[in-house]
Amino acid sequence: MTVLLFLEQMLNGLQLGVTLFLLAAGLTLVFGIMNMVNLAHGSLYMMGAYLCATFAQWSGNFFLAVLLALPVVALIGLAVEIVALRTLYARDHLDQVLATFGLILFFNELVKIVWGPVAIFMDIPPLLAGRVEFIPGAPYPVYRLAVLAVGLAVAAFLWWLITRTRLGMLIRAGAANREMVGALGVDIRLLFTLVFGLGAALAGLAGMIAGPLYVVEIGMGDAILIKTFVVIVIGGIGSIRGAFVAALIVGMVDTFGRVLPSAAGLPAALAEMMTYILMAAILFWKPRGLFPVMG
């Protein structure tokens, strides 16, 4: 593998990593603070992609579409939280698995009814089309760089939110000890709803910016959801920092796992396995992930 190809793949890995981080950030908080399994997080990713694709068709402007779709996904997330999930916090994990599995069925079929079974291909917005010679000799797609930038910007924003604001302090406290936050006199319901809305918006955003890169299709959320789970588990449930580090690791492993085996003549599906082997190895030594949140 040449150095140029290596650098290019590294950027691809980073870009996949930050996309995973967008999904993982919200979900790890839901898992950590609410001790809740939510399988339907990938559905919000899918809804984000579909809404954005539709708004882009209507308005002809990708950026406007993102601005329109973001609050809608957040609202869908809030609705799901209030209608379905709120009653499930106190239930056991099995109930949560089943109920959110039901939500996946619902959302996948809903999309089929509204948008039909055919996949949608989104265009890369003209402003971000083309390539730049970011690395001399290896022109790199501008749009992918933009995705990378958005992901890093969100990471920075979350870092600020979590470490520098009162809301962030409550979130951190909630991840470590739920009862304590309640004892502080904070409306824990409202905190949960806010966190869930934020997570929904981030998942939707991930879907929106992934739209032009991949295909907008039914079930697109399920595949990436499981990778997101891997990220969260490797990073340590409830840890944003862990999610960030693990997202980059998984992004890299997945990307290089795709390139290297095919170079060596091995089947491509091994790439998919690599991520899980990595996870098994990490959990064998650290059953609570790389950055365990003290409970």
Partner: peptide, 18 residues
Amino acid sequence: GIYFIMITLAFAQMVYFF
């Protein structure tokens, strides 16, 4: 807990892709 659910899921994916 949640780790167990996620890990069994991930292993199943591993087998699937195998």
